[in-house]
Computed example of a mutant assay.
Amino acid sequence: MFIMVAFSFLAACTKDVGSIESSKLKIIAAHNQTSPDTPYQTGMLKFKEVIEEKSNGSMEVEVHAGTIGTEEAELVEKLQLGAADVVLVSPGFMTQTGIREVDLFSVPYLFRSYEHWLQVVDGDVGKEMAQIINDKSNNSFKLLGYWTAGVRHFYGKKPLESMDDLQGMSLRTQTSGVIGDFWEATGAIPSSISWGELYQGLQQGVVDSSENAYPFFVQQSHHTTENGKFITETAHDYTTRFLLINGEKFAMYSKEQQDIIMKAAKASVTAEREATNRQDREYKEKAMSEGALVNEINREPLINLAKPIQDAFAEEIGAQEMLQDIRDLENK
């Protein structure tokens, strides 16, 4: 009797192990944009496509477009808690994890062109930042790639002819950290109204202005509101977004699974960047065709205002050498 029971128990265990080994690896991937037409969704769907194709269906990616969090802070928390496996976040929201160096990438006018940004993130500086993220998070976060969110510009109730026009103007932007410091220095009043409430806020005059890239604010029709129809191409931020995976989970995957994830991440980087650059052009044209007015501004006063803020922040976080490396790349 004992032998029969033991045999049955071993058989059951063998069956359980087999079912675990043969089950699909499911990856929850999320970003905060609710529109299905954003470059974020394009990138995530490419990530899903490559993983599922190369794994022959043994790995599955479930993409969430704003459905498990429309605020990046929520996504970072879910990544930490294991409720999401892959998320897309901006440098500013990563600082809540205690990794302050990442916020250097969000300093206004750090990058002077898209080509300059590429040299930084795809070069040695980008590798250094990836290592910092991994080390300072104790492997909780692993960087899979650098996405972009386009070039951020000002849009509001009036055009900016000079920096003086920002005096006393409420501006939806990040209110804390180096971004908030910059806009306060211009004379603007940073406001923390949420992205999901911003259309109504602009329409009802709760906030005078905002700043973002064409693919994002035009898709949300911000340019059709009274306080959003004047676009000034300040180009104050060639934006960086971090595609992160839970590092502890990643370490538990097989070598084959890890390789597939990294290949999918690389493909997603290409797809997302191409979609963003294309939409930057398309949505600018759309905004203008729908009545938005676009003007340029002499950026030098803004750039000069940003430099001492960059210096002070780099010194505060011990990133002076990295800041200099970034500046040096501008001239190459």
Rank of each mutant, 00 (worst) to 15 (best):
K157D: 03
M288F: 09
N32M: 08
D164Y: 03
Q310Y: 07
G318K: 05
N304R: 06
W147N: 10
G82Q: 06
Y40F: 08
A188S: 13
F105Y: 03
Y253M: 06
T95G: 10
I309H: 02
I317A: 13
S289G: 04
K249H: 14
I245F: 00
I317F: 02
D37R: 07
G247Q: 04
G92K: 04
Q310R: 07
E52K: 09
T173K: 00
D181Q: 15
V17S: 06
D237P: 03
G291W: 02
L110N: 00
K263S: 04
A312D: 02
I260Q: 08
I3S: 13
K136T: 00
A84M: 11
T270K: 14
E72T: 10
Q200G: 15
K157R: 06
L104I: 12
G228S: 10
Y114F: 13
G318D: 00
E315A: 09
F2A: 14
E282I: 05
A235K: 10
T239M: 03
D165H: 02
K266P: 08
T240A: 00
T97E: 13
P39Q: 14
T225Q: 11
S192A: 15
G201F: 05
L329R: 06
T42S: 00
Q80F: 13
I297R: 12
A306C: 13
F93T: 10
L302G: 07
G187D: 07
T186K: 00
S176T: 15
T14Q: 05
E77P: 10
M1G: 07
L104Y: 09
P159S: 04
I132F: 03
L25T: 01
E248Q: 02
T42P: 08
D37H: 14
V218E: 02
T234W: 09
A235P: 09
S194R: 15
K263T: 00
E72H: 11
S137P: 07
Q96K: 15
A271N: 05
L171Q: 08
A287T: 07
E60H: 04
K284N: 05
R100Q: 15
